[in-house]
Amino acid sequence: MNLTVNGKPSTVDGAESLNVTELLSALKVAQAEYVTVELNGEVLEREAFDATTVKDGDAVEFLY
């Protein structure tokens, strides 16, 4: 899956889609429990991480 992460191209191997929690784990995001996630310009509530799917071509920003 090809994404733009914090403005840079990134690839997650072996996945066509992941939820936000899985993406944080796959990318080994440090202190993931404290990060705010913006997906395609929309800031996500932490409670929505498990239910929100990240797909090929999406833009993700991790805000600390």
Rank of each mutant, 00 (worst) to 15 (best):
18 L>D: 00
48 A>Y: 11
44 L>N: 00
41 G>Y: 04
14 G>C: 11
28 K>C: 14
29 V>A: 04
26 A>R: 13
50 D>W: 08
37 V>G: 02
60 V>E: 02
6 N>H: 04
33 E>Q: 12
57 G>L: 03
53 T>W: 15
20 V>P: 00
19 N>D: 03
36 T>N: 06
1 M>S: 00
43 V>F: 07
44 L>V: 15
25 S>C: 13
62 F>Y: 07
48 A>Q: 12
17 S>T: 12
27 L>M: 07
38 E>K: 15
9 P>E: 07
15 A>W: 13
21 T>N: 10
33 E>D: 11
35 V>A: 05
15 A>L: 10
21 T>M: 08
29 V>S: 03
41 G>I: 04
37 V>I: 08
24 L>P: 00
58 D>Y: 04
27 L>Y: 06
42 E>C: 13
29 V>R: 02
13 D>R: 14
3 L>Q: 01
37 V>E: 00
42 E>A: 11
30 A>G: 09
48 A>S: 11
32 A>I: 13
42 E>R: 14
61 E>N: 15
29 V>Q: 04
55 K>S: 07
6 N>P: 01
42 E>D: 07
9 P>K: 10
47 E>W: 14
42 E>M: 14
64 Y>F: 10
18 L>K: 04
50 D>M: 08
40 N>A: 02
36 T>S: 08
60 V>G: 00
49 F>K: 00
43 V>G: 05
39 L>T: 00
44 L>F: 05
55 K>H: 11
42 E>W: 10
50 D>S: 12
59 A>C: 13
35 V>S: 04
10 S>N: 09
53 T>Y: 15
55 K>A: 06
62 F>G: 00
20 V>D: 00
20 V>Q: 00
20 V>L: 07
8 K>M: 11
30 A>L: 11
44 L>H: 01
58 D>W: 03
4 T>N: 06
38 E>R: 15
32 A>G: 08
35 V>E: 03
56 D>M: 06
50 D>R: 06
44 L>I: 15
40 N>I: 03
52 T>E: 03
13 D>W: 15
38 E>A: 15
27 L>P: 00
46 R>L: 06
59 A>M: 11
32 A>E: 07
29 V>I: 13
28 K>H: 11
43 V>Q: 08
34 Y>A: 07
63 L>Y: 15
60 V>L: 12
57 G>S: 03
59 A>N: 12
25 S>W: 12
11 T>M: 10
49 F>T: 00
27 L>I: 04
